[in-house]
Design a protein around this nucleic acid. Structure first.
Lengths: 248, 248
DNA sequence: GGGCTACGTTGATCCACGTCAACCACAAAA
DNA sequence: TTTTGTGGTTGACGTGGATCAACGTAGCCC
């Protein structure tokens, strides 16, 4: 690398700038005015890169900031003393991590990168401060938290009331919808998580997940090749959701 | 009713007053200064009585306010098209209902009184407004939402990774802890919900819940008489949680 | 009091999913 | 090219909890 005077652009590349970000529509700035987003730029700190399998934060860590996923993807999980793991969610670009920490000032779950990823660091103290001034930010932040609560209720429904194949169908449809929202194909995508992680999320063992994938393939609903998924019959998948097979 | 000039006291009895409420420590005012709580009084609207089995709100209702439980208790649930119900939570005095509605401006679950109950109505628009001015309110409100997220993660753990008896033990310990926080006995309490509702919450059938209760009774952990519960061996119950019996 | 209704308990049987085990696919290292 | 490791698939079998069914209990209204 040559020695030369620092160029503003290189500094800008280290700092996040919501106003320039193409994830606005999916992220905290959604619904905010241009002016408001400019104010948001003040508060978003540096970006941070997280390598695959590394922790963004751990249960027990002091809570200082929330994180917006700029690139890559994560899982969050909770561990029981005896080693059992419950994956509580998979997060994609534009989604916010760390909200669990507000309640006690300590994080209560782990956030782990599923691939090499990058997050924007949003210092929480500053966020509260600014959202007292910027109405749009306040409102949007509340919506983000509320959406998390609603999402969690959906997972409870899934874990509490659905059978294995319904759960996997719901999972695939959810992934498809989120890929679509990010401009990717609704029908063909690459899962970043293992069968075991999907199983943990869905309250199933990895073998059950694998068998359900095979069943869907036999039935012509999807084409599965390891982590690569092609949805062939989205209507068929949706039909799986709404009536339990054993004539209820 | 006789015609006479309105007396301030009778008006006050219709309106909530956080500053006078003995549930402060459990509710939105927790951690706020006396001054801040006085400001909170401005915004909390009338109380509303809800009879047993009646809805406070339904999935699909327009979201306008959140509610603090002043007396009684509630369940929240989500219904699937085919009629399956998932209870997403049981709420007691001081707890906040309705946070799910912020995300879409519509409620996404039902809130139903388990007994004759009363709530304080907190108009959401006003809450956002005031929490831009009152730092303590803003912070506390965020904590309440975050706590809900953390609680939901706990339920996911329960539904995704625990066996029937672990789930019921976790449920009983949680109830006991919440009764304690409200000044009731930790060891002896009255459940307001049916076996079916407990089962729905825990992802089990009512028969399984009933059998687990019977098993706990045989093992001398609790004395069960319908909805009346007496915990005899809290340590024993806790031990159930942390190692799955079938030598994992 | 007697009958009704909602809720709870208990037993017998069934089955969806877990468990255990073998094998396969692919990627990175040697 | 083989080796090694991680993740995925598939089969055989076991079991925890669901299902089906009968009966018990408590509150409520007439």
């Amino acid at each position: 690398m040559q020695m030369k005077a620092a160029v503003p652009v290189s500094v800008a590349s280290l700092k996040a700038a919501c106003s320039q970000c193409n994830l606005q529509e999916l992220c905290l700035p959604f619904g905010m005015s241009e002016n408001e987003i400019d104010r948001l730029d003040e508060l978003v700190g540096a970006r941070r890169k997280i390598k695959r399998q590394q922790h963004l934060y751990r249960a027990g860590d002091l809570f200082e900031a929330i994180y917006a996923i700029r690139a890559g993807s994560f899982k969050t999980d909770v561990l029981l003393e005896d080693g059992r793991e419950q994956v509580t969610g998979f997060q994609m670009t534009g989604e916010i991590l760390g909200l669990d920490g507000i309640s006690t000032e300590f994080h209560t779950c782990n956030a782990i990168a599923l691939e090499d990823s990058e997050v924007c660091v949003i210092p929480y103290g500053k966020l509260e401060e600014l959202s007292r001034e910027v109405e749009g930010l306040q409102h949007q932040f509340h919506k983000v938290m509320s959406r998390e609560i609603v999402r969690d209720h959906g997972v409870m429904m899934l874990l509490g009331s659905m059978r294995a194949e319904e759960r996997l169908a719901a999972f695939l449809l959810n992934m498809s919808q989120r890929f679509t929202a990010r401009g990717f194909s609704a029908a063909e995508f690459h899962l970043r998580m293992t069968r075991e992680e999907i199983g943990s999320y869905l309250g199933l063992k990895l073998e059950t997940v694998s068998r359900a994938f095979s069943r869907f393939q036999e039935d012509g609903l999807v084409a599965v090749q390891q982590k690569h998924i092609r949805i062939l019959d989205i209507v068929g998948l949706k039909k799986l959701l709404h009536h339990q097979p054993a004539g209820g």
